[in-house]
């Protein structure tokens, strides 16, 4: 399959290794990976803040970049939600509503793509250690992704998954919320990190780098030994 890679802007800037991990996993499965360079940001920051006109301008660039794509895969539940769930709302009644819907239909979150589209739960990865999984809210509640990453982790050799009590509780990132309402965002982060530490896992894994940025930020600040990795990085481990 020819797979067009959708790399969210913060992954592009902060976590390029996550994107490379996706490339390695998909190529390892024998697929061709394309990276349409015209892509920038999905438009979620202005959308979430209420600036829908500005969000549409950014979204149109993304739509254009992936116009010819067969299938689009991105390593973020949140950014994929923007395309898959919110583009149809954002473009309702606009001349390019149909294009928004088409892109929504062919775009997939990475773990969901592997399990539900390719039908694969074992990518031949190996990772030694105890990990716990954080469900990003958008992936979990907008896209209904819960079992997919767990099915993939279950087949990683050497990996032991321990569930945290607050797996489904928001980490408190929420985009600009994290700075506009920093004390609340921090309090939520504290609840999340306490739950992670309680598991005794050495690594916290998620399918959303934005959540991991929030979680990692606090773990590092507190000088915790717990590491954080994107699901794709685990799946690319050999």
């Amino acid at each position: 399959m020819r797979i067009s890679l959708f790399v969210p802007c913060f992954v592009d800037q902060l976590y390029p290794n996550v994107a490379w991990s996706v490339v390695r996993v998909l190529e390892g499965l024998g697929h061709e990976v394309l990276f349409p360079e015209g892509q920038s940001c999905c438009g979620q920051p202005p959308f979430n803040s209420g600036y829908w006109d500005e969000a549409r301008s950014a979204a149109r660039v993304t739509m254009k970049a992936f116009r010819d794509a067969e299938v689009v895969v991105g390593p973020s539940g949140s950014c994929v939600t923007m395309i898959k769930v919110f583009y149809p709302d954002l473009f309702k009644g606009e001349p390019d509503e149909l294009e928004a819907r088409e892109l929504a239909a062919k775009t997939h979150e990475f773990s969901s793509f592997l399990v539900n589209v390719l039908g694969i739960t074992d990518v031949g990865a190996k990772f030694d250690g105890k990990v716990t999984f954080h469900d990003g809210c958008h992936g979990l509640r907008e896209l209904g992704i819960k079992s997919e990453p767990r099915a993939l982790l279950a087949n990683v050799k050497g990996l032991e998954l321990v569930e945290m009590s607050e797996a489904e509780t928001c980490c408190g990132f929420g985009g600009t919320f994290a700075v506009k309402y920093a004390p609340i965002s921090t309090a939520m982060d504290e609840v999340k990190c306490a739950s992670i530490l309680q598991t005794g896992a050495g690594t916290v894994v998620s399918n959303d780098s934005s959540c991991l940025m929030q979680i990692r930020g606090m773990l590092e600040k507190e000088k915790s030994a717990v590491k954080s990795l994107h699901l794709a990085e685990i799946l690319a481990s050999r």
């Binding site: 790399v7 992954v11 592009d12 800037q13 902060l14 976590y15 390029p16 290794n17 994107a19 490379w20 360079e37 920093a182 921090t186 982060d189 940025m213 929030q214 990692r216 930020g217 606090m218 590092e220 600040k221």
Partner: peptide, 14 residues
């Protein structure tokens, strides 16, 4: 105040 800020990667994925 409560979280370390991530460092920009030396080179972006692009």
């Amino acid at each position: 105040g409560s979280r370390n800020f991530p460092k920009l990667a030396p080179k972006s994925f692009h």
